[in-house]
Structure formats: structure tokens, C-alpha cells
Computed example of a mutant assay.
Amino acid sequence: MNQVNIFNENVEAYEAWYEKYPEVYLSEVAALKEQFLKLPENIKGLEVGIGTGKFAQILGIKEGVEPSNEMASIARKRGLEVVNGNAEILPVKDLNFDFVLFVTICHLNSAKQAFKEACRVLKPKGSIIIGFIDKDQKIGKAYEENRMRSTFFRYANFYSVIQVTKLLKEAGFKDLEYNQTLFGNIEEIKEVQLPKKGFGEGSFVVIKAVKK
């Protein structure tokens, strides 16, 4: 079973996770918003891997690309414009967006190719924003250790901050900025956490970078 089928067949479980861990979700949103505040106003953005639209909706993103038909269907019901497609071959013309968002890159077939595609569809000096679980921190290590018991992470590829940084630079990005959240185990997080600059403590890291 490939990863798209996993998401097609487990949409309810995906949505239920956010209901079970609202403080985790909102902590991630807070970290993403901190980087979004650095962007100009009235700009056009795209979320790659928009899923059911949980992040796009709360962040004010109107458009997305999603390979799972079932996930995309829910995102459309939330009022989002979603095109079925893959991150590695975006069905988007060149130089079309001011920013591109990725959340949870562990499900990409090739992060390297996905970042190159993001660079292609971004306008000059456009920004990429990536939120992901750092495999070197507590939650990332737990996901890695328990992957065979997980519906969603069995076939995931987790990345370290150093790895993502290298891939972004190779794809044509510069001026990287970092923040982090999710300090502690998921079960321990009972209130929304404020993000901190940098990385190396929190399990969820957000990187913002600019197209060269």
C-alpha cells in the first residue's frame, strides 16, 4: 500500500488526531504564523500537500495541491481550491506564487525534487516555508521507533534540520530562518506553546527561506 492509499483510506483517523491533540496542532500553527508574519501582505500562496485543509484554512491560504482524492475532497468542502497532484511534479506554471508552504515533509517521495519544484513555481524572491518534525528531537525519535505500529508513519522519511537546510540550499534558496515548538512528548503538551527562535530543542521546526 503506497502512502496516497493510506491517506485515502484513513481520513477519519487523520481528522481525529487533530481533535485529540488540539494544543499540539495550535502550537504548530503558532510557529508557522510567526514566519508568515514576515511575509508581505496581499500575496498569493500555495500549500503543497494540503491534506484536508487544516493548516491552509487557519493560515488563510486559498490554494493547494494534494495527491489523495479523499483528503482533497474534505479540503474543498472547507472552501479551498485544490488540484490533485504530486509535490515532485507540481501542476502549476512557473513563477506563479509569492510563497509555498509544506507541512510534514516526511510523506514526500523526494524532498529534494519537491523543493526544486517549489523554487520553480515561486516568483523571484518568493519564500518557501516548511514545517516538519525534526528526527533528532523527542517526538521525531518516538515516531521513528514506533513507525511499524503507526498507520501514517510506517513509510515516512523523517529529516533532521541539517538535512532540510542542505536540500533547500541545493534547490536554490537562501536566507534561512528557523523557529521551533513542541517541547516535550505529545501526550505531555496540554497547552499551546509559544515558538522559540532557532532549533535543537523543539520537535516541530519551521524554516523560512527565500528564492535566490
Rank of each mutant, 00 (worst) to 15 (best):
M1Y: 10
Q3N: 13
N5I: 01
N8L: 06
N8S: 12
E9G: 08
E9D: 15
N10Q: 11
Y14E: 02
A16C: 02
W17K: 04
Y18I: 08
E19Y: 07
Y21H: 13
E23I: 02
E23H: 15
Y25M: 05
Y25D: 05
L26N: 14
S27A: 12
E28M: 06
E28K: 02
E28A: 04
A30G: 00
A30K: 05
A31D: 04
L32E: 05
Q35G: 02
L37K: 15
K38L: 13
K38S: 11
L39F: 12
E41Q: 14
E41P: 00
N42G: 09
K44Y: 09
G49C: 09
I50E: 11
G51V: 08
T52Y: 06
T52L: 07
A56S: 15
A56N: 09
Q57Y: 13
Q57N: 12
Q57G: 07
L59A: 11
K62Y: 11
K62M: 11
E63I: 08
G64A: 11
V65K: 07
E66R: 10
P67Q: 14
P67I: 09
S68Q: 10
N69G: 15
N69F: 11
E70A: 15
A72D: 09
S73V: 06
S73G: 02
I74E: 10
A75I: 03
A75K: 03
R76Q: 14
K77G: 04
K77Y: 08
K77D: 13
R78N: 14
R78C: 06
G79K: 09
L80R: 05
E81R: 10
V83H: 07
N84A: 12
G85L: 08
L90D: 07
V92F: 01
K93S: 13
F97V: 09
I105G: 01
C106A: 13
C106D: 05
N109P: 05
A111T: 04
K112L: 03
F115L: 13
F115T: 07
E117N: 07
A118Q: 07
A118P: 00
K123C: 03
K123M: 12
P124M: 12
I130G: 03
F132Y: 11
I133N: 00
D134F: 03
K135I: 06
D136H: 04
K141V: 02
A142Y: 02
A142H: 02
E144K: 13
N146T: 10
N146S: 13
R147C: 01
R149P: 00
F152P: 00
F152G: 01
F153N: 05
Y155R: 13
Y155A: 11
Y159L: 03
Y159M: 06
S160C: 09
S160K: 05
I162K: 09
V164T: 11
K166D: 14
L167Q: 14
L168F: 05
L168V: 06
K169A: 09
F173Q: 00
D175V: 07
L176H: 04
L176M: 13
L182R: 09
L182V: 04
G184N: 09
E191M: 10
E191K: 15
V192M: 06
Q193S: 10
P195R: 01
K196F: 04
K197H: 04
G198M: 07
G198V: 12
G200I: 03
E201G: 02
G202V: 12
S203M: 08
S203Y: 01
F204P: 00
V206D: 03
I207C: 02
I207W: 04
V210W: 11
K211Y: 10
K211C: 09
K211R: 15
K211W: 08
K211I: 03
